[in-house]
């Protein structure tokens, strides 16, 4: 099923934001929509979007490639993106990430064996005063977790595992 068939209301609302002759502006919100289910943009969705806004599929791929929050490959259900940029690093983000890796038994870029969490390192998220911090990207949404410790993070993952926690 195409994106427009699956989410007719959402697609309509997205297009309503922009002047009718500026369909291309809808590409970014449409890409988020395309990530809602799988957490990444499938080949079919890329073509769907290209057709919807009347640009080439290569142009859609070029946009996905430019922005870090769009993905064209499947990863864990949650992408745990820890900021280790300068301000966070001054407040121990590097150590936090290293400890987290040890506890989870995976390296940055890897996914927990149950396919739940992919651990990633990212640049500044505008949460510098509340380091260590990370964001959880899942489906279409993103959620911040600030002033974190390794223990609190492990608890969070446990909750995600049990399914009593959804990214809002």
């Amino acid at each position: 099923m195409s994106l427009a068939e699956k989410y007719p209301q959402e697609v309509k609302e997205i297009f309503a934001k922009y002047p009718p002759e500026q369909k291309r502006s809808a590409v970014m919100p449409l890409l988020y929509l395309a990530q809602r289910e799988e957490g990444y943009v499938t080949k079919e969705a890329m073509q769907d979007i290209a057709d919807l806004i009347e640009i080439g599929v290569t142009e859609v791929a070029a946009i996905i490639g430019f922005y870090t929050l769009y993905h064209d490959e499947k990863a864990g259900k949650y992408r745990m993106q820890v900021c280790t940029d300068l301000p966070c690093a001054l407040r121990g983000a590097d150590e936090f990430l290293a400890n987290l890796c040890d506890n989870l038994g995976i390296q940055v870029g890897e996914t927990t064996p149950d396919g739940l969490v992919t651990l990633e390192e990212v640049k500044c998220l505008a949460g510098c005063d509340k380091a260590p911090m990370f964001q959880l990207q899942s489906g279409e949404g993103i959620e911040y977790h600030e002033n974190m410790t390794v223990d609190k993070t492990l608890e969070l993952i446990e909750a995600l595992h049990k399914g009593d926690k959804e990214v809002s």
Binding site: M28, P29, L31, F66, Y67, T68, L69, Y70, K123, C124
Partner: peptide
């Protein structure tokens, strides 16, 4: 007024 989200690019 409308919001528009970027996608990770300083």
């Amino acid at each position: 007024i409308y919001t528009h989200l970027g996608a990770g690019a300083y």
